[in-house]
Every structure is written in structure tokens, then in C-alpha cells.
Design a protein around this nucleic acid. Structure first.
Lengths: 198, 198
DNA sequence: CGGTATCTTGAATTTCCTCAAAAAGCGTGG
DNA sequence: CCACGCTTTTTGAGGAAATTCAAGATACCG
């Protein structure tokens, strides 16, 4: 997976750094750039008309945020750093130029967008048709894939954060984690989790 | 919105026609092409481990399905025609060639993918944080946008189909529609709906 | 007209939420 | 090192929302 599908990196003028909980952009703000994530991880959130928060996507290095800038005048979601992060700012005109000029970058961008589509489809399935237990297990599997099986994974997310992702209330997340742990489906220790190796 | 972001159309060899309820591809099938929708509308579905069906996206003309072929060896979802449809088959090698050769097509593809991302994010919000009433209203707004306000819109979807999209049981859809109708938020007549003009 | 699919509606049940209180963790400053 | 305040987590009780199951009503099609 490329570190940044559009820029070649190394231009410090376009580098953006965010601390934990710092906000990159919010819904409705004028959208003039997308951002390639180089380090750290972030979350994309939205708010319902009735004010409830929904986390839409967990964003990893190699992902892009703010892609709607390519087709909309305003951002459609809030992006917030979950851990300290380093991003590369890609003004939308630059993206258009790059895509029109360097075709291999164009392909890389399309591929990144396809991966987003796959990730969002997974979320849709999780939120639309899974029970609380299935949601939690599915989420844990997603975040632990790519780590050594059977080792502890540290989630820098509170129970509330998890609930925002899973479409569950804080209490339900806590209860479900413990029910699953009692059943042996996983181990929990504060914000660390571990799947039984198998 | 372009009719087909990648092909220039007109090549009858790549045309695919589907009748109502006919299936284009299923989860796990070898993925060697994406398809640009030219006429009709389709739905993209997935199944949970426990066998429940979830409709992920309502696909309109101008949209693309099967984009995961660009980054995965197998399709990740089922695509089924809701109404009789005409698509243009885009073998994945052709897409890569076209993107690498014709940069304006590359841009059009990326833009289509960004629109998909926006639509899927909307679904995520709907499924994760909305009540049954909010889901139904939100869905009706989505499908009636683009039509004359205050006129009847025909949905070729059963109550079960609606439930698949909204993450609700058949009965809940029926009840909710009638509750909303009684409250004056919309009018229902079988599979036709109408929003009060305003 | 009969047959099939779809839709409505009800009753009982499950799942998850809300609200709230208590427990645990964590960092800071004394 | 301990005490303090603050945030997060656990846990409980009660209630709301949606589900399941099922029976009956309606519409559609040949």
C-alpha cells in the first residue's frame, strides 16, 4: 500500500500535524483539499439531524480523507485525530492536475478510493445487520488483522469511541466486551484486547 | 453526471442486460470486471455470517458496480437488478489501460468513486444512528430527490426490500410507513409514496 | 376464479438504551 | 508516597424500540 497515492511526499510545505483529538475539518466547511494519512490514525464522524454522533470510518496510514472535495464544495464529515498524526495536504487543484498529468498516480488514487468503498461497505453490514456481540467481534477482528495473532492490541479508543463506531451505547459496549470475555471469545484488559490465537 | 465514466459507450460487445431480480455477480466470485450502469437500477447486497441479508447501496444510472475488482480478486458483494437494466462491462485490464492512457477518464472514474464514498457514508449514518422513522424518511427523501416535488414516486421495492436497505424487519417498515402517514409526514399507496410539497 | 406473493396487524419477546450510582484508573501537586 | 480531582468504566434497574412469529387481509396474474 502506497504511503501517499497522489503526492510523492517530501514536500514539508504540505505536511500537516495533528495531536490527539485535534480536528482536521468539520461538516459543512469549504472543501478545498484532501489529505493522505502518513502516520497515526483518525476517525471520520457525522452527526444525525437529532444530534447523535456516528463514527463512519477508522482511517489508517495509506488512506485518504476529505475525498469529497473532488465532487463537493463542502466537506460531508468531521475528521479528528485519534492518535497524533502526520498528513499530507493535497489541494484539490493539485489532485486534478496530478491525475491528468501522471497516469500511474491516477490509478493509485482510484485504487485507494476502491479500498475506501470496501471498508465502508463492511461498516454498512456491521451497522445494519449485526447484533452487539457480532459488531464488537467484527471490529476487533478488523483492528487486530495485520498484527501478530495472539498478542495484545492497544486501542486508543474509549468505550464511548467504540460505541460511536459500532452504533452502540457506551454501556452496551462495556457489557458486551465482558460477556464475550467471559465466553472466551476474547480477552480484555482496559483498552487492550487479545484474540485467542488459533 | 457522465453516463459511463470509463468507456465511451457504443460498443455493443460490452453491453449487459439484466431483467428484474437477475443477478450480475455474487460475493466470492472471481472479479474481473466492473460495470457502468446506463439504464435501470440495481442493489448491492451482502450477507452476515449469521445469514441475514443487508442491502448496501441503491445503484443508479451513472454509478459503477464491482469496483472492488480493481483491488481484490473476488467480488465482495452481490449485485442484483431491481428493474430491468442495461450495463456496460468494463474488464479490469481495460480499466487500467484506459486510466493510464486517457487522463480525463481517470479523473471521471475517481469522481464516480468519490460519489460512491459519499453515498455509503450516508448509509452508515442511517444504519448506525437513526430510528426507524428517521431511516424511512431519510430513504424516501433520497429516492424522491431529483423528482418533481409533491408528485408520486413509484418504488419497485417490496417492504422486505426496503427493510433490507434500512436494516429493519419487514413488519417494522410497514408499521413505520403507516405511522408516518398518519402523522402527515408522507402519503403511502402500495409501493408509491409522496412527500407533502413544501 | 384460484393461486401466489405481498402487506398489514397483533401479541409476546428480545435487545439495546437511558439514567444513574458506584468503582476503578490516572495524573498532579503536595 | 499519598491525597485529590477528573475521566473513564462497570454495573444495575426500568423502559423504549424493534424483532419474531403468526394470522388474516389484500393485491396481482394467469
Amino acid at each position: 500500500m502506497p504511503e501517499c497515492p497522489v503526492c510523492s511526499g517530501g514536500d514539508p510545505a504540505r505536511e500537516v500535524r495533528l495531536g490527539r483529538r485535534e480536528i482536521l475539518h468539520t461538516e459543512g466547511e469549504a472543501a478545498d483539499a484532501m489529505y493522505a494519512v502518513q502516520q497515526g490514525f483518525l476517525r471520520e464522524t457525522r452527526e444525525t439531524p437529532s444530534g447523535k454522533l456516528q463514527a463512519v470510518r477508522l482511517v489508517f496510514p495509506g488512506d485518504i480523507v476529505g475525498t469529497e472535495a473532488l465532487v463537493r464544495a463542502e466537506y460531508q464529515s468531521n475528521v479528528e485525530a485519534v492518535t497524533a498524526s502526520r498528513l499530507c495536504r493535497l489541494p484539490i487543484d493539485l489532485v486534478r492536475d496530478t491525475v491528468l498529468r501522471e497516469s500511474s498516480r491516477a490509478l493509485a488514487l482510484s485504487e485507494a478510493l476502491c479500498r475506501h468503498e470496501i471498508a465502508l461497505r463492511d461498516s454498512t453490514l456491521l451497522l445494519g445487520s449485526m447484533t452487539a456481540e457480532e459488531r464488537v467481534m467484527s471490529f476487533i477482528h478488523r483492528v487486530t488483522s495485520g498484527t501478530v495473532p495472539g498478542c495484545w492490541t492497544d486501542l486508543p479508543l474509549t468505550r464511548q469511541d467504540l460505541g460511536d463506531f459500532l452504533g452502540l451505547a457506551l454501556g452496551t459496549v462495556s457489557r458486551t466486551l465482558h460477556r464475550l470475555a467471559r465466553a472466551g471469545a476474547l480477552e480484555v484488559d482496559g483498552r487492550r484486547v487479545r484474540l485467542p490465537r488459533g
